[in-house]
Design a protein around this nucleic acid. Structure first.
Lengths: 236, 236, 236, 236
DNA sequence: TATGAATGAGTTTTCATTCAT
DNA sequence: AATGAATGAAAACTCATTCAT
């Protein structure tokens, strides 16, 4: 009866699929209905499906089927397919910026801080392929769904602040050239980290080499860091 | 929810949609039966729709409507929606590699040749947004459609040959460092050229600055060339 | 060319199309959601349409229209046109074998048992023209749909068991000749019962006499029984 | 491009696919356009397709593709799909009756004549599976196409005449019982010859034994002759 | 809060037939 | 007599969403 939609295995590393529910209340009080858990579960499955199939390609039925609950609940909590998609975007974008804050690069030497920032960005994209795919998908839709996310812009601005701080300190210390714009630099770094994940399939088909393969990771990581630092180095 | 599929305006710069047919025979002798023209017309409209909406999001009806012919002909020539999508991919991939051949960078000084190659790649992505979108879309589908294109792999390999030649000559002349892999370098260049077009919407929303805006083009072009050449420069 | 699909009147005798539902609950409490009833209803209408028009000739729309529900439900429960066709086959083949079991010919004198079996087979084909047509149709498709029915083979084998038992007892008692194969005999009996129903139209056109006409039934029934028993009779 | 419709191998024995064209006129006068040959070719391919797929299941495109000519010609000569189907029926029904005439059973002893007639009928069905299938198909359509064939009825009546003659002579000589109707007997014989071919697929699936397999032919042939003669034998 | 059944509007695809050359 | 291109109408099938329990 059921046809079986793929996207079964989460195309992502490091996110545990069933976080230990911190059920504070005693023993067998395990509530039968747990709205938060239900929502979380739906969101997780939806993230996989949307990132695997795109917005148009995703199937509400397929999501519901892999959920612990039914299709009706999906509408109950998220209103519509698009509402669910947006909720997925919100969650996924929230995660990356939250982590960036924890880097504390402002306490490091500018060069070391920059290296650490690039490495973090590289690793994050390498590990969160769902995120990369969703960004890709969102661009196909002209970013019209992230545009409606309230927290989206402010979050990103803070990423630029971090870079601006590093850049300013590096210029002051004579380590970095002085003609680089922070947003441009962010674009440069993102490009190098994003492309090898986002377009790995066509690249792999074209050259017989999957650029996201673990064996290449170390080499690519060094290359990206190298390229960014060489670009920034003051050569006066 | 949404009804009419837009995608009317080609999301592309510089390619006129209806090249003036040099119809030798007089004036309005426009033949009624012209299979090649019919196919060309369908393919062109399909390129727009698929690049604007994705494979799942594209509507066969919408394509047919903007064509000079009927939906039926679309199936007559291309068998299915997927067949048409694949034909679009074939055409679009064919174009870029054809142009690359015309660069004749093998006749130039390695450094100049490399600069020219990067500039060409930058400009091509900047101008052919349909191509960039289609690559993006194809990656969402795990590249399973380009995989079936016979000419796909061989074409791409030739791009690597060009880079390898430049690299070898530059290393020999002492201008380039010797530890760079040609395919890695291709990935690096592609990343820098692709990302600012492919993800311009989310980037624009995040930072209030469309990275593909013409005003930024010159600056970004210089930045990309600079980044690549600094990366390659021999610093022994 | 032809538009409306007929097949309105069930091409079958004796089976009431809507058995009086013994609805325990009062009178018009006709439940709105009754999946079993919905499926039953679809299956019944589909049996008529498929047996009247063949698999290719049947129209999903035509079936849906004569149903109490919509076309969508048909796909909901049976997946596809072919799935529905297969479900029809399953039901229809299930019925005949179920009835055969109730004959209890093993308790009868072999000759009487054989007579009863032939008469039953004759009557069944005479009354269940839908069944005959569907078998015919299935043969046009090389039996590829019944082949997928799990229960199909085992059910038929039991029919042979019955014959084998009668045959063995008749041979032992000296009533039947000993050189007859059970499956061959089954084929012989089937032939005589099937043909006059299955090909009644061409036969009727050719000879101006509908071989399935009730008026001929008694005579044909006697003829068939007579032919089988004469064939089996021991003439040593 | 072409999808490939099956039904390639004619499901029939003994009909050569390309009869030697008796081109009376000299040597290389081989006409470029030969209407009769074209029609013959279309008819032959159509016979295969219709008998393999049924009227509704047959594809005009599939027929045209396997022809030496184009679809247009098919309409030119036969008006419509149904017209072509009818032409096929006409040809196929014509063949069997023509052969029956050649038997000259009226010159034989009634018992021998009857044996010969049954054997002929058995062999004909065994060898002309396309014919059997087409009769089957025609019955699904309520025989409405053969009804329009002018020669159909008269041809069949003559088959009954043959039987009536045999029967009368056999009764007169005391070899046959006197209470058998000629048309009923024809039905009996047809049943035994037709069923094992027409329903061989479901039968084969049900019992793991293809009743039309050459190895069984001799045995079945004997069985059928035996059954008919025992049925007719005078037992006063 | 949760659910299986139901649905209408849309989407891809097919097919017999005709047109222009 | 022959042909490849073209087509409108209909067919199968899909999908996000809502209803009744």
């Amino acid at each position: 009866m059921k046809k079986g939609s793929k996207a079964a295995a989460p195309d992502q590393t490091g996110i545990p699929s069933e976080p230990p529910r911190s059920d504070a209340r005693g023993s067998d009080t395990r509530r039968k209905y747990d709205p938060e858990e239900t929502k979380r579960n739906i969101l997780e499955v939806a993230t996989q499906e949307f990132s695997a199939m795109g917005l148009a390609g995703a199937r509400v039925d397929a999501i519901a089927e892999r959920t612990n609950t039914t299709k009706r609940m999906l509408y109950y909590y998220f209103e519509s397919k698009e509402g669910l998609y947006q909720a997925v975007l919100e969650k996924v974008y929230g995660d990356i910026r939250a982590l960036e804050q924890d880097l504390h690069v402002s306490e490091l030497d500018p060069l070391e801080g920059m290296r650490k920032l690039v490495e973090f960005t590289f690793d994050y994209h390498d590990r969160h392929r769902d995120f990369v795919r969703l960004v890709t998908i969102e661009n196909i839709h002209g970013a019209k769904y992230v545009e409606q996310l309230k927290t989206f812009k402010s979050r990103n601005i803070s990423a630029i602040d971090t870079i601006e701080d590093l850049l300013a300190r590096g210029v002051a210390s004579g380590q970095f050239r002085s003609d680089v714009d922070a947003i441009d630099l962010h674009l440069l770094i993102s490009s190098l980290c994003f492309h090898r994940i986002g377009n790995r399939h066509t690249f792999g088909t074209a050259f017989g080499r999957d650029p996201s393969h673990p064996r290449l990771r170390t080499r690519h990581r060094a290359m990206v860091v190298d390229a960014v630092l060489r670009f920034l180095r003051n050569t006066d």
